[in-house]
């Protein structure tokens, strides 16, 4: 085996541990290294990262496609802001999680009937439908209509800069708790059942796994985390309106999940950073075609991801082998 191959093997085996350590160190050091404006962007990136962790649980491990996670963000943010003045922000975010879990369970029930790309499109419709709802005249008295809602969470800080730092640590703590929680959830009885259901629902059922229950639960849990992330993010920004969490966020979350490896949890936060920063970069390259740049870059990444093993083999001069029966 070449040196390169051995190195690749080491990274593959220890990659996740290394990445986790790197992400943690960076997260703790960040507010000291980059105080001021940039901290706010990073707080938002972590919120999106929570959303991607939720998506990895559902899609990466559970095999159910969701292009509707912006809907959980939106629902969570509205529930949090509507309830926060009465029950306090922390409790409101918790209720936001529960509300998002209920929506998730509903989608999970639909997911029992349609799979794959169809489920992806159905959830996309949820993102579109929920986008429309806060503006409806019947709901406007609660949702603030098209002018949105303001809420300033009470924090033990007075200056805007100090508030930003507080938010950073709060969001980071929640993100850590959720990520560690998902990590252990995946290694629990439920996690094994979830992956079994994804791999082969028929076999999982024959082994005693209630695949329907597991799939619906996964959707509810994933929705809850995304809803919590939405509530937090709303708190960080202090203002929400119907277009705070547009359907494009669903797309960005899904892409963030795909390009950072569907089954690597710490990498989710790299995905979150991509959501915050890449559109700006793409816009800097060309404002008219920024989404085209984004789409093109995504295709290039996917191409590398799919064909990397073959390209690597060609690079190291070994015969490329294709599995028998691979004709797709």
């Amino acid at each position: 085996m070449s040196v390169f191959g051995r190195l690749a093997g080491l990274v593959a085996a220890r990659g996740n541990a290394l990445l986790t350590a790197a992400v943690l160190v960076a997260a703790v050091a960040y507010p000291f290294l980059f105080p001021g404006y940039a901290i706010n962007s990073m707080t938002m990136a972590i919120c999106y990262g929570i959303g991607i962790v939720a998506l990895k649980l559902l899609t990466g491990y559970g095999g159910q496609f969701s292009l509707g996670h912006s809907a959980f963000f939106a629902l969570g943010s509205y529930v949090a802001f509507i309830l926060a003045p009465t029950i306090g922000f922390a409790a409101a975010v918790a209720v936001a999680g529960i509300a998002a879990a209920l929506l998730g369970a509903l989608l999970g029930l639909a997911g029992l009937r349609i799979k794959g790309h169809y489920l992806g499109l159905l959830t996309f419709m949820v993102a579109l439908a929920l986008f429309q709802m806060p503006k409806a005249s019947a709901l406007a008295p609660i949702t603030g209509g098209s002018s949105g809602l303001f809420y300033r969470a009470p924090l033990p800080a007075t200056t805007p800069a100090a508030r930003d730092v507080w938010w950073y640590w709060i969001v980071l703590a929640v993100a850590l708790a959720i990520t560690v929680g998902v990590h252990f959830l995946l290694r629990s009885r439920f996690g094994r059942a979830l992956q079994a259901s994804r791999d082969n629902a028929l076999a999982a059922g024959a082994l005693g796994v209630d695949t329907a229950l597991v799939d619906v639960s996964a959707f509810a849990v994933s929705g809850a985390f995304a809803g919590i992330a939405g509530g937090l993010l709303a708190g960080v920004i202090g203002y929400i309106s119907y277009d705070s969490f547009p359907y494009t966020l669903s797309i960005l979350l899904f892409v963030g999940m795909t390009v950072t490896g569907a089954r690597s949890l710490p990498a989710a936060y790299l995905g979150g950073a991509l959501i915050v920063f890449v559109p700006t970069w793409a816009h800097d390259i060309t404002s008219r075609l920024s989404w085209a740049v984004y789409g093109g870059a995504l295709l290039a990444l996917l191409y590398i991801q799919v064909n990397a093993p073959r390209l690597l083999q060609r690079l190291t001069g070994r015969e490329a082998t294709r599995p028998v029966g691979d004709v797709s």
């Binding site: 079994a196 082969n200 028929l202």
Partner: peptide, 20 residues
């Protein structure tokens, strides 16, 4: 053969044991 490819050998067996 319907093994679960995401799980290792032990977890394939363990899954059945804990569901049973």
């Amino acid at each position: 053969l319907a093994l679960l490819d995401s799980l290792n050998v032990l977890d394939n067996v363990r899954l059945a044991a804990e569901q049973a």
